[in-house]
């Protein structure tokens, strides 16, 4: 990883963080019509995976998918405007926070049903293989989805057909309100790869360099026809399941501990230690990301809502 990439990863993480914090404000101010699921604290995973993807590689994501869209290149304005239900959003207000699409850059959808994006990404990879390309599909999902049948059926099929897909399980320790240790049979979800005869790895999802390295290996397998890989990236959901969730189910001290292992802070310190970055460079990058997020929020709030009757476009009527 060269220095430019190291800085780019930091920028991506900052962009996601600032966009999410703007959305938290917009939500409090009543500009987001439903409770969004924010990605704060998990930025290293989206950044570390997507940094190595080509524009023609594709991803599917989840109800907590804003970060993946930004990391794949979706302009902040289009994402925030969609979450604010505006006509200028990436789906014209038809999708919303849980349904973000931009297929021309490979965002094939954030999907609101837990686990449901996994077979879709598997099918995207099937098409890529049948079309004889070296494109790759990535499926982001959570620890909750790893306990869903969609996970099992998809990993088995992807392995049997040696599909160019990377399964990225973001273990943020909570499936809605249920802790992973109360709901999951294995200590490491990455170990489940053994059931499908594919490589599985568990990395610290708050260390972008670990995520990056795991993705590099998985991508090289996928691009060369060696099939899928499961990456478990362990992180922590520092916000509630949704905005407004007080998350009273957390263990005491857990949140404080997680905050101390912040992915942006970790990478910033590392870059400073390595002489890639100075404190003032970081401040400038953070300010730039913040300004972009503020501008995107203003754009969203100033944008019109779609006309009510647009609801029926794309739906066959009798």
């Amino acid at each position: 990883m060269d220095n430019a990439m190291k800085v780019r990863l930091l920028e991506t993480m900052l962009n996601i963080r600032k966009a999410e914090l703007q959305l938290a404000i917009l939500y409090k101010n009543g500009k987001v019509p439903c409770a969004a699921h924010l990605y704060e604290g998990q930025e290293a995973i989206a950044a570390g995976v997507c940094a190595q993807l080509r524009v023609d590689d594709c991803l599917t994501s989840t109800h907590r998918g804003h970060g993946h869209c930004i990391a794949k290149g979706m302009p902040m304005k289009e994402m925030i405007a969609e979450v604010c239900a505006r006509k200028t959003g990436c789906c014209g207000g038809k999708g919303g926070t849980m349904h973000l699409f931009k297929p021309d850059i490979g965002v094939m959808g954030t999907i609101g049903i837990v686990g449901a994006g996994i077979p879709v990404a598997t099918g995207i990879a099937l098409a890529m293989k049948m079309q004889k390309t070296d494109r790759v599909a990535v499926s982001f999902f959570g620890d909750g989805a790893a306990n869903n049948g969609a996970f099992h059926e998809s990993l088995n099929l992807a392995s049997v057909w040696k599909l160019p897909v990377i399964f990225v399980c973001e273990n943020n320790r909570y499936a809605t309100s249920v802790a992973v240790w109360r709901s999951t049979s294995v200590e490491k979800i990455g170990d489940r790869a053994a059931s499908y005869s594919i490589p599985g790895v568990t990395v610290d999802g708050n260390c972008v360099d670990e995520v990056y390295a795991a993705t590099e290996a998985a991508l090289s397998r996928a691009r060369t026809g060696q099939g899928p890989t499961l990456i478990e990236a362990v992180t922590y959901r520092v916000r509630g399941h949704y905005e407004g969730d007080d998350a009273a189910y957390r263990k005491q001290g857990e949140l404080t501990e997680a905050r101390e292992h912040d992915p942006i802070e970790y990478w910033k310190q590392k870059l400073i230690e390595d002489g890639v970055l100075r404190e003032e460079d970081f401040a400038a990058l953070a300010a730039k990301a913040e300004a972009e997020a503020e501008e995107a929020a203003a754009f969203a709030v100033d944008s019109p809502f779609p006309a009510p009757e647009e609801a029926l476009i794309l739906t066959a009527q009798i």
């Binding site: 094939m108 449901a116 879709v120 598997t122 099918g123 995207i124 990879a125 098409a127 998809s154």
Partner: peptide
């Protein structure tokens, strides 16, 4: 589900 993904890709 894989049919959905493949269909989205043409």
């Amino acid at each position: 589900g894989t049919a959905v993904g493949a269909a989205m890709m043409g």
